[in-house]
């Protein structure tokens, strides 16, 4: 089953084109890793696929409400505990199992601790546990392994593999090797927009974005 099809996509950040003419497709059970030098537009591309930005050109086809997006910020509230943070996102996204998500990211012993008292790596793990409770088929992940130790990276790779096994798909930008042998890799370097090229505003609103 096709979960995502991207056709000749061009994206822009702040009026400057980032990558142009990117095409790829993701079926159920597939993972795609985006690579490329800093600033080429991986984050912009992922935000566009997640629906937070409009594409400059090209088409993105997927089902409504398919994407679970995770970026540099984890969307955690410092005053709430680990469980409360996770329960909130589970309720908003219409509910996966909190207990299973906590166990998958090894957060059970921290369940009652306020998010303010977590280390950077623990926050990241909580941010990734959120993906498990969204029950969305397509994970769009921007540098998911930042500040994770080796054991946690392995745990995260296992969670991605389980997600793929359950018929999901994942689109990731990452610089490190996750040990996901089945994942395809797409190098964005050949798609870099021509230097100094300025995007035409896609719409009136885009001119002010």
């Amino acid at each position: 089953m096709r979960l995502l099809a991207v056709d000749h996509l061009s994206v822009a950040r702040g009026g400057t084109r980032a990558v142009e003419g990117v095409s790829f497709a993701l079926d159920a059970g597939e993972a795609l890793i985006l690579r490329g030098p800093n600033g080429i537009g991986k984050t912009t591309l992922l935000r566009t696929v997640a629906g937070l930005q409009l594409p400059v050109a090209g088409r993105i086809s997927m089902a409504d409400d398919a994407v679970a997006y995770a970026a540099h910020a984890d969307g955690l509230k410092a005053a709430l505990t680990v469980t409360e943070n996770l329960r909130f996102w589970a309720e908003i996204f219409g509910g996966g199992q909190i207990g299973a998500a906590l166990a998958a990211m090894d957060l059970v012993s921290l369940a009652d601790r306020p998010a303010a008292a977590l280390s950077a790596g623990q926050k990241r793990r909580l941010g990734l546990a959120r993906l498990l409770v969204t029950r969305r088929p397509l994970w769009v992940l921007d540098e998911p392994t930042v500040s994770l130790d080796d054991v946690s990276v392995g745990r995260f790779a296992a969670a991605v593999r389980a997600h793929l096994g359950a018929g999901g798909a994942a689109l990731m930008a990452t610089h490190i090797d996750l040990g996901l042998a089945e994942a395809r890799v797409l190098d964005l370097t050949p798609y870099r927009a021509v230097e100094g090229g300025v995007a035409d505003p896609a719409s009136f609103n885009e001119a002010f974005a």
Binding site: R47, L52, K77, I92
Partner: peptide, 14 residues
Amino acid sequence: HEDGSLDLLATAPI
């Protein structure tokens, strides 16, 4: 907006 919740809420079903 600072902690990223707004991005996540924008992609949420509500």
